[in-house]
């Protein structure tokens, strides 16, 4: 449905998006994850035809966004970071205007506007001026605007930014409800959002794609070793070396910010050391208070790929400076 190939965008000497490629299948929700300034908004603006790319291609619903912008735009709904509302128009007037320029036919327009207002729950504000709406309503009217012409592709730039927790949940439900008939790309820097709404994640940092996968696979893949959390009641004993001596255990360290007696035990990948660990602790006469696997959260994954990868890639990028012509 969406295909992005080797997309690059430079602003003068600054490269905002650097050789980004990904695909989104029909009906999928793709999360676009990255710290602020990573190039999420720029990529989305290129996809929506707001600005052209310096290099590379992007197709939406089979239409190249640069070669056939009108066809692509007709099939795309876009919610920018700040909802593009006209403060002196009422919600209904505004949506009516958007319907006109999005090419909704005049006999459908009225029913379409009403339907969309119901769907995004803004009907009670229909005759309120957009400038007088609360942040939550503004966001919802923005969403209403994006789905008004029933586009195949929806591009949402931080749809939950600035909302309160209840509104965030409502908006997520709404977005999940839209998947299926629509293909959705949403950007965020809030991680739980991705694991809760998206089927696939693209992590982008400093303009480059650093990881593409499902949230589950990402967590699993980046977790190099299995880690167990163990809480032992063994005052004065040298637990660390005792546990480290067990077969299969690669590393033992005191757990961060926990009561004494808590340890993180890493083991070889694919090897379950829980039974051996429990038996050993019990035979030594210590008390086993807690033993559970530690799962890497998406937060950890995110921090790992956005902080460690660039460091690892540093020598490579030093060899090929940014200004060097691409092969």
């Amino acid at each position: 449905m969406i295909e992005v190939q080797h997309l690059t965008k430079r602003y003068g000497r600054v490269t905002a998006v650097d050789d980004v490629s990904f695909r989104v299948e029909r009906g999928e929700i793709l999360g676009f994850l990255g710290p602020n300034g990573a190039g999420k908004t720029t990529t989305m603006r290129i996809l929506t035809g707001y600005m052209p790319a310096s290099e590379g291609r992007a197709t939406v619903a089979g239409f190249d966004v640069f070669e056939h912008p009108l066809e692509a735009k007709r099939r795309t709904g876009y919610l920018p970071e700040t909802p593009p509302l006209y403060p002196d128009m009422t919600v209904r007037e505004y949506l009516d205007f958007v319907a006109r320029i999005k090419g909704v036919s005049s006999n459908e327009r009225r029913t379409r506007v009403e339907a969309v207002m119901r769907r995004t729950r803004v009907s009670d504000m229909a005759s309120r001026h957009c400038g007088k709406l609360s942040k939550g309503y503004r966001q919802r009217v923005g969403l209403a605007q994006a789905i008004l012409h029933n586009p195949e592709v929806l591009i949402l730039d931080e749809p939950t930014a600035g909302l309160d927790p209840k509104q965030i949940i409502e908006t997520r439900d709404l977005i999940r409800g839209l998947a299926g008939d629509h293909t959705i790309v949403l950007s965020t820097h809030i991680l739980p959002e991705v694991s809760q709404t998206c089927q696939r994640v693209v992590i982008i940092n400093k303009g480059r794609v650093v990881a593409v996968d499902t949230p589950e696979n990402l967590t699993a893949r980046l977790q190099g070793a299995e880690t167990l959390y163990v809480h032992v009641d063994a005052p004065g004993a040298d637990v660390t070396s005792a546990l480290a001596a067990l077969p299969g255990v690669t590393r033992v360290q005191p757990a961060e910010m926990r009561a004494s007696g808590a340890y993180e035990v890493e083991s070889e990948r694919g090897r379950d050391v829980r039974r051996d660990l429990a038996r050993d602790i019990v035979t030594r006469g210590w008390g086993l208070l807690e033993l559970r696997p530690m799962r890497m959260s998406l937060e950890d994954v995110f921090l790992q790929v956005t902080t460690e990868e660039p460091a690892a890639a540093a020598p490579e990028s030093a060899a090929t400076p940014e200004e060097a012509p691409r092969a």
Binding site: Y50, K73, E81, P84, I101
Partner: peptide, 11 residues
């Protein structure tokens, strides 16, 4: 106000 984004991304 950013509404230009609406105009420029509309068909």
């Amino acid at each position: 106000s950013g509404t230009v984004e609406l105009l420029l991304t509309s068909p």
